[in-house]
Design a protein around this nucleic acid. Structure first.
Length: 317
DNA sequence: AAACGTTCCAACCGCTCTATT
DNA sequence: GAATAGAGCGGTTGGAACGTT
């Protein structure tokens, strides 16, 4: 089956979203929830196809999205999970709840892939790697990446205040997301934004809150337009942002039991991965992986590395 | 200052999966 | 079980921003 016919309709607008469109979309979703995307364009009058509306919400407007530079920890998580799972961006994103799959995918394609290629190239030049097997030999090169990143960690950290110097309108959705965090956190279902359906609040929240959001969005627009001549003035990540991130991460640090009920931070993809890994008797238990992913103290990395030394990447790639 | 090349990422495309009838 | 619609996922691209000459 092809793409939805709505996307072929004449009159469907394409290209970057405007602040006005964002306001319309956010206010609609605030009222009705992020579902039934088919009805969004007709109900809101937006000249966008339903798919475009969903992507805009999922990738930029929904609460809790973190934008800007990836931390060394996030880089490590992405690199390691990519070596384990391949290009399953949704699964990888489920371990970085504030990052979207699209964001991770872009970051991988524009930064990490090059980095790894460079490292592999250097390793090949040293004659360390047999070139017959094109698959990534995860432990060697990931270990090199870890070392390299450790050395770069301080640089990245000190560079954080200058992150996101390239600022287009879309980057102001960072501010929108931050504003919407109040909405999310006040919701009775305070969930991580890892999965859309779990992060939305219900449609029957009171109207005052809705108008507050619109007010806040309008404020962002005003600020955005005032800053036209001052591109790149996005506020640096605050301590609150880091606290929020940490609170998200700490929510899932307990090894999961197979309870049969999926908690907000345990998307189905993670279960897929667990099932997949569990099927291989020589694969590490996923809780160990999770613990490592969510714990900067990397003593467990060694254990994980030992466990996966004979199995990583071969049945997965 | 202008021209050109490169980088980056928001958005789109096409396919697959899932739910519904 | 088949057909259809809606939603999700991963790959790709267009164009703005940035860097270099």
């Amino acid at each position: 089956m092809g793409r939805p016919p709505c996307c072929d309709n004449i009159g469907i607008k394409k290209g970057p979203w405007t602040p006005e469109e964002d306001i319309v979309l956010v206010s609609y979703i605030r009222e009705h929830g992020p579902r039934n995307w088919r009805s969004v364009p007709t109900s809101t009058g937006l000249m966008r196809c339903s798919k475009s509306c969903r992507l805009r919400w999922t990738n930029y407007l929904r609460p809790g999205i973190k934008r800007g530079n990836f931390t060394p920890h996030e880089e490590r998580v992405i690199i390691h999970l990519q070596s384990l799972l391949g290009n399953r961006w949704v699964a990888i994103a489920s371990y970085l709840p504030q990052r979207t799959d699209n964001d991770i995918k872009n970051y991988w394609n524009t930064h990490l892939k090059k980095k790894i290629n460079n490292i592999q190239g250097a390793a090949d030049a040293d004659g360390k790697k047999p070139s017959s097997d094109p698959r990534p030999v995860c432990h060697d090169y990931v270990s090199q990446i870890y070392k390299m990143m450790e050395s770069r960690k301080q640089d990245l950290t000190t560079a954080l205040p200058n992150y996101h110097q390239k600022s287009r309108y879309a980057s102001s959705s960072e501010n929108i997301s931050r504003l919407l965090q109040g909405w999310m956190q006040s919701s009775p279902t305070v969930n991580a934004p890892g999965k859309l359906k779990e992060s939305c609040s219900t449609a029957d929240d009171d109207d005052d809150e809705n108008s507050n959001i619109i007010t806040a969005l309008t404020a962002v627009l005003t600020e955005n337009s005032q800053a036209e001549g001052d591109r790149g003035s996005c506020a640096p990540m605050t301590h609150d942002d880091f606290d929020l991130l940490h609170s998200f991460e700490s929510m899932d640090t307990v090894p999961r039991e197979n309870t049969g009920t999926e908690t907000p931070f345990q998307p189905a993809e993670a279960d897929d991965a667990e099932a997949h890994l569990g099927a291989e008797s020589d694969q590490p238990p996923l809780f160990l992986l999770e613990n490592w992913l969510l714990d900067e103290a990397s003593a467990q990395v060694d254990e994980l590395m030992k466990l996966t030394a004979d199995s990583c990447s071969y049945s997965i790639f």
